[in-house]
């Protein structure tokens, strides 16, 4: 089964962790993830500027490692990211901002990638809220 997973919440929201555990369970069950698409506050789940206390889960880092390890297609919505200050090196240069907080394995792209993923997948699963 092919899954497209869309995340709408920041790394500190329980739903971000829930999405990650769902994605891990999907792969463990032999399923495919055609794309992860992070929209709205979900862009914060991809930010590498998050500093989690040592005795707490670092969900943004776990997302990065998960996407890298499985070579998944991890897309962060560019319009939602710019609005929330989540920038890769290219966008930071373009808008003359001093901070870069998004890097590989994440790519910035448009909402078309959400529709493209939904078309390619058997199931579109969204996570967000608490």
């Amino acid at each position: 089964m092919k899954f497209a997973i869309a995340l709408f919440s920041a790394a500190h929201a329980p739903s971000s962790r829930r999405a990650l555990l769902f994605a891990q369970a999907a792969l463990a069950g032999g399923h495919e993830i055609v794309r992860l698409f992070f929209y709205q506050d979900g862009v914060y789940s991809a930010a590498n500027s998050i500093v989690a206390p040592q005795d707490e889960q670092d969900i943004a880092r776990q997302w990065r490692e998960f996407v890298s390890q499985h070579q998944l297609d991890g897309v962060v919505c560019i319009a939602a990211a710019l609005r929330r200050g989540v920038l890769n090196a290219e966008e930071a240069t373009r808008y003359q901002r001093s901070a870069v907080n998004l890097e590989a394995p994440w790519a910035l792209s448009g909402l078309g990638q959400l529709h493209d993923a939904a078309q390619a997948a058997d199931r579109l699963i969204c996570f967000g809220g608490p």
Partner: peptide, 19 residues
């Protein structure tokens, strides 16, 4: 907040792809 606009953006993007 931006939520209502961002919901509409999903719809408009889908429309732009003739979905």
């Amino acid at each position: 907040g931006p939520s209502a606009r961002e919901a509409l953006d999903i719809v408009l993007a889908g429309g732009a792809f003739d979905l």
